[in-house]
C-alpha cells in the first residue's frame, strides 16, 4: 500500500513549536548569554568569559546548597519509597474501602504547593500551631523558625505528607496488575509473606517504582515553593536548597551572571540524572 505523503501535518506542530520557543528555548539561550556576562541593568552587558562558572564551581555557598539538596532528596527518597510501598501493600484490594483509600491518598496531591507550605507553616508554629504547640507541650524544645534540626524535620515531614501518596498510588497500580495466579502458585508452594513480596510483588512493581523514584527525585531536587513558604530557606541558610539559593542570588542580589552560571550547572545535573533514569527505565522494559 502506498502511503500518501502529506507534509501539511507539520503546520499542526507550529503552535507547540512557538510555545516551546518562547517559554524554553529563548529563555535558555538568554541564560547561556547571561552566564558569560556582567550587567548592572539597563541592557548593558560586559563580557566576563568563564569567570562566573569558576566562581560558582569553587564557591562554598554552592557546594553547601548542592550538599543540602542531595541530602534532602536522599532523605525523602529513603522515607517515601518504603513508606509508599508499605501503605500500598496494606491498602484493600477490593470492596468499598478501595475508593475511600484512593480518594484520601490523592487529597494531598491536589493541594497547591504554596498552600501546602502555608498550611504547614501555621500547623508547625511553636506558639499557636497544632504540631508546634503539641510538641512543646510534650516537653520537646521545638521551634522550626530558629532551630536547624527542627526546620529540616518540618520540611521533610511536609514533603513526606505531600508526596508519599504519589508513591502509594503508583505502587498500588503496580500491585493491582499482578495476576491472582502468581499468589495462588506462591500459596501452593507455601511461600512466606516476605517471599511473596520479594519474588512476586517487588519484581512486578519494579517498573512503576523506577518511575516513582525518578519523579520523586526530580520534584524534590527542584523543590522551591514549599520550603520557601515554610522556612524561606532559614534559619540562616539551613534549608536554602538549590532553587531557593538560586532565586536569592538572581533576584535578591541581582547577580544575573553568577545566577545564570549556577542555573546552567543545576540544569546539567538534572539532565544527567534524567538520562540515567531514562536508560534504567528502558532497560527494565527490555527485560520484561
Amino acid at each position: 500500500m502506498n502511503k500518501t505523503i502529506n507534509q501539511k501535518a507539520w503546520f499542526f506542530v507550529v503552535p507547540v513549536f512557538v510555545l516551546v520557543a518562547f517559554n524554553a528555548v529563548i529563555p535558555l539561550m538568554t541564560v547561556v548569554n547571561y552566564s558569560f556576562q556582567e550587567t548592572f541593568g539597563n541592557n548593558v552587558f560586559m563580557w566576563e568569559g568563564t569567570r562566573w562558572f569558576k566562581q560558582i564551581l569553587q564557591s562554598e555557598r554552592f557546594h553547601a546548597a548542592l550538599g543540602r539538596q542531595f541530602l534532602f532528596t536522599g532523605i525523602i527518597l529513603v522515607i517515601q519509597i518504603p513508606l509508599g510501598i508499605a501503605i500500598a501493600l496494606s491498602m484493600p484490594k477490593e470492596g468499598p474501602w478501595v475508593s475511600v483509600c484512593l480518594v484520601l491518598m490523592s487529597m494531598p496531591l491536589l493541594i497547591p504547593w504554596n498552600v501546602v507550605g502555608a498550611m504547614w507553616n501555621i500547623f508547625a508554629l511553636p506558639e499557636i500551631g497544632f504540631l508546634g504547640h503539641t510538641l512543646n507541650g510534650l516537653g520537646f524544645d521545638y521551634n522550626f523558625t530558629q532551630q536547624i534540626g527542627d526546620a529540616w524535620f518540618t520540611t521533610i515531614l511536609m514533603d513526606v505528607w505531600h508526596w508519599t501518596s504519589l508513591v502509594v498510588l503508583l505502587s498500588y497500580a503496580g500491585l493491582m496488575s499482578i495476576q491472582p495466579a502468581y499468589y495462588q502458585a506462591a500459596e501452593i508452594d507455601g511461600a512466606s509473606r516476605w517471599s511473596v513480596f520479594r519474588y512476586i510483588e517487588l519484581p512486578k512493581m519494579k517498573k512503576v517504582l523506577t518511575i516513582a523514584i525518578l519523579l520523586r527525585f526530580m520534584d524534590s531536587f527542584m523543590i522551591y515553593t514549599e520550603p520557601f513558604v515554610l522556612t524561606g530557606g532559614g534559619p540562616g541558610n539551613a534549608t536554602a536548597f538549590l532553587s531557593i539559593d538560586l532565586v536569592k542570588m538572581a533576584l535578591g542580589q541581582f547577580d544575573l551572571g553568577p545566577a545564570a552560571a549556577m542555573s546552567l550547572i543545576y540544569f546539567f545535573i538534572v539532565l544527567l540524572v534524567c538520562w540515567v533514569f531514562y536508560n534504567l527505565m528502558m532497560k527494565n522494559e527490555e527485560q520484561s
Partner: peptide
C-alpha cells in the same frame, strides 16, 4: 535584553 555576543 538577550545580550547576544558572538561567542554564545
Amino acid at each position: 535584553w538577550m545580550a547576544w555576543k558572538w561567542q554564545t
